[in-house]
Every structure is written in C-alpha cells, then in structure tokens.
Design a protein around this nucleic acid. Structure first.
Lengths: 227, 227
DNA sequence: GTATCATTCAAACGTTCGTTTGAATCCCAC
DNA sequence: GTGGGATTCAAACGAACGTTTGAATGATAC
C-alpha cells in the first residue's frame, strides 16, 4: 500500500484546488476561509474536509499538485543538458535557464491556475507557518541538490560557501519576481504590458542572475572586467 | 494640528510594539492574535485598542516606528556620497552599499528589535493584504525615486526599463535574504555562524548585486567577459 | 427494485477572533 | 487631600473560524 499514492482527482477536488490556489494567492492561507473557498468553488462547505481531511491538508495538496512535477521538470531539463554536453562542463547560463524555465513556463499558463500557483509559490518561501516552509523545503530538496552540484561543476573556482550564498540570492530574486509581479510595484515605471511576457522576463532574469553568479569574489584578487 | 504628528511613546506602547514586531515576524499578521500579543507584552488585552485604535493601526505603527527613519538614512547616505563626489558620477557599487547598508545595520541590532523588524519587513513585500503592501509602498516611494535617479546617472547606457527591472531584482534579493535568514534553508550547507555577520553579508550581496546591475544586455552585442 | 457505497447537503458544534464596555485604579496639578 | 483626566482591568460582545454530524441524494452492481 503506497502512501502518497497519486489518486486521480474528481471534478469536485479539482474545483476546490483551483479555488484554493487563487484565494490563497489573493488573501494568504489564513486570510482565505473555508467559506470563501468552497463558495468560490461552488461546492458544499464540508467538501474540503471530506475530500482532503482538513484545511492544512488542502494547503499541502495545492502545492503537491504542481510543485513535484515542476521540480521533476527542472531535473529532467538539467539531465538533458548534461547528456547533450557529453562530459563537457555546462555554462552557468544554461543551468540558470533550466532552473527558472519551469517557473516562467508556468507563469504563462493563464487558463489553468499556473500563474496563480507561481505567485502563490513565490510567497510561500517567506511564509511564517513552519509546516508550510518545511513542506516546500522538502519538495525542493532533490532539485536543489542536483543544481548545486551542477553549479559547482560549472564554477569550479568558486568556493562552496560562496556558491551556496549566491544560489540563495538567485532563489530570492526568482521568488520575489514571481510573487511580486503585478502586485507590488515599489519601483514606478515598469511597463505592465511586458510583465508577463515570459520570454522577455527569462532573458532579463538570466542576464542578471548569470552576472551575479559569475561576480568576482569580494576581497579577493579582482578578475579583469570588460572596460 | 498635524496629523501623523509623532507623539513620544510611553512604556506600554513600546512594549506592545516590541512584542508585535516579534510575533508578527514569527506567526504573520493574522497568525499573531491580540491575546498572544498583549500577554507577551505583559499588558491588558484592551491596551492595543486603547493606545493604537485597532490591530490594523498597530501593524501600521510597527512599520512606521522604524521604516521612515530607515529610508531617511538611505537618502542621507546617498546625498552624502553625492556631495563627496562633487559632480562626478557615483559607482553602482557605492549606491548599492548605501541602499542595503541601512538594512544590514539593523539586522545586527539583536538587543533592540531591529533584527525582528528586518525579517518582518522582508516578508511584508509579498504580504497578501493590500493595505499593508500599499503602506510599505508609500513609505518606500521617496527613497525609491532618489535611488532610481542615482542609478540612472551611474548607468547612463542602461535603458530605463531595464534599470527598473534590475532594481526590482535587486530589491527581491535583499528582501528574500532578510526574510529567509535562518528560517528557510532551501540550500543545505550554509554555515549558520556567518548568517548574521552583516559585514560578510554586505560584501556578498554587493558583489552579487553589482555584477547583476552591470550585466551585459541580453540580446545585444555581448561585452567581452574575462576568460 | 434493492442493497451498498460514495458523495452532497444544511445545520450545528465549540473555539477563537478583534473589539467594546464600564468600573477600578493610577497619577499629578491644585 | 481632593478632583479629574489618563490608563488599566476583568468581563463580555457578536462575528467568523475550522470542523463535525446525520440525514438526503447519487451512482453502481446484482
């Protein structure tokens, strides 16, 4: 008997998950009540507890529906790159694209709840509730290990602890960009029309992150930069 | 009669703000209840409503106590740099230090609630509740305008919309780093002992962000990078 | 048609939430 | 010491929360 067996979802469950995805994103996990949620989904109030067990279990299900597949996609993309490279080192640029690609592809999914989920996910990294952070952390763990190893091979001269920090920064940039897109606009002047153009966003993010990853080490001998 | 007049705080108000800062950081704004809050502060349940009016007003007071001063510090530091430069352009590096310095100085304040506040602030950028985001946005607005202008002068060749995005990324990195420090550790291997060493963190952040800001434009002629 | 199981439904459960109340207490000018 | 405004206090308010219940309904197999 497989725990975590993936049962096919019926329509009620799907409707609940879709509504939850959107309302959790708009109001937070505590701010979105069971009554808001079930009425948006068009199901009875008791349906969540019947189908998922509890509100907390629903939160977990919302993440589980998409996040595992997303990280599997990341790993698959990375392995494809490594196979193509046939032993040669990958460029940091390519690894970054493999990592952020899954997120950006999802942000373009407006019909399904992909965009809602992406923004919800961006928020979850800084979620105060411990169980949620732990859940996210354990769902990310395998992909993180693989990408850390890939970056370490691509940047052999970068000390390990510096790499960990730079991945941390990279992750933060991605998380914030996903979460804040079209919600916070601290910096006035961003054009709304290309906010969701994943291609443009991918280029901008990759350029920024790749430069950050390759930055000369502070305090060490400075690598010559282009004039 | 000045609205927003800054009245000196009595001890009860200070105790409430300190407790709120810590509990909002640990449990979020909705997760921290008035009863938790007042009992941690050692004051009567009704004290919050008496002194601040409502829970929402308390949240605003928590931010107002420190954030305005923090952004004023940022602007003052920037103006000092500009005065010293006597008309010459500032380096992006120096502008970045002026911006993140205020945050990092505050994170070292463990006696006062500075560290709590810093982490709370990192969370607030992705807070779902609209009034909170608006409040944060308007408190940041003046500093953002000044820094945008400063970066624009320091990077005259960078298109304005690209600059806005790169500031967005920069802001995200800082927010996430502040919020996630010692809470989320998605990437295993970070040494806990230097997590709060603001000096080391400042060097790491500055190196990463400055490289990101100076990144060659994607899709344009590639600037030669160091081998 | 009837038995059996899964699902839906309206209603209610007990708890906790933010806020309000009115009396008690403190503090200080006079 | 006495009056009066500021503050604290215990208690209660109505509303909203997540969850549970038991009956009603639906679907499926015989």
């Amino acid at each position: 008997m497989n725990l975590r067996a993936i049962k096919p979802l019926n329509e009620t469950q799907t409707r609940i998950l879709d509504a939850a995805e959107e309302l959790f994103m708009q109001h937070g996990f505590e701010g979105a009540s069971m009554r808001m949620l079930t009425s948006k989904a068009g199901v009875n109030l008791a349906a969540v507890n019947y189908h998922f067990g509890s509100k907390d279990a629903l939160i977990e299900a919302v993440f589980r529906r998409r996040l595992d597949a997303m990280n599997a996609q990341r790993i698959a993309e990375l392995e494809r790159l490594e196979a193509d490279a046939a032993g040669h080192a990958l460029t940091p640029d390519a690894i970054i694209r493999a990592f952020i690609g899954a997120s950006l592809r999802m942000i373009e999914d407006t019909r399904g709840g992909g965009r809602n989920f992406t923004r919800l996910l961006g928020r979850a990294y800084t979620e105060p509730a411990k169980p949620i952070r732990q859940l996210i952390g354990q769902m990310y763990a395998p992909a993180m290990e693989r990408f850390k190893a890939a970056f370490a091979r691509a940047l052999p001269e970068l000390p390990k602890d510096e790499l960990v920090w730079r991945m941390h920064f990279m992750f933060g940039t991605l998380a914030y960009t996903l979460a804040a897109t079209d919600t916070v606009q601290l910096i006035a002047g961003a054009k709304p029309e290309d906010r969701y153009d994943a291609r443009v966003l991918q280029e901008r993010l990759t350029a920024f992150l790749s430069a950050g990853l390759l930055a000369p080490l502070a305090g060490s001998i400075h690598v010559k930069k282009a004039a």
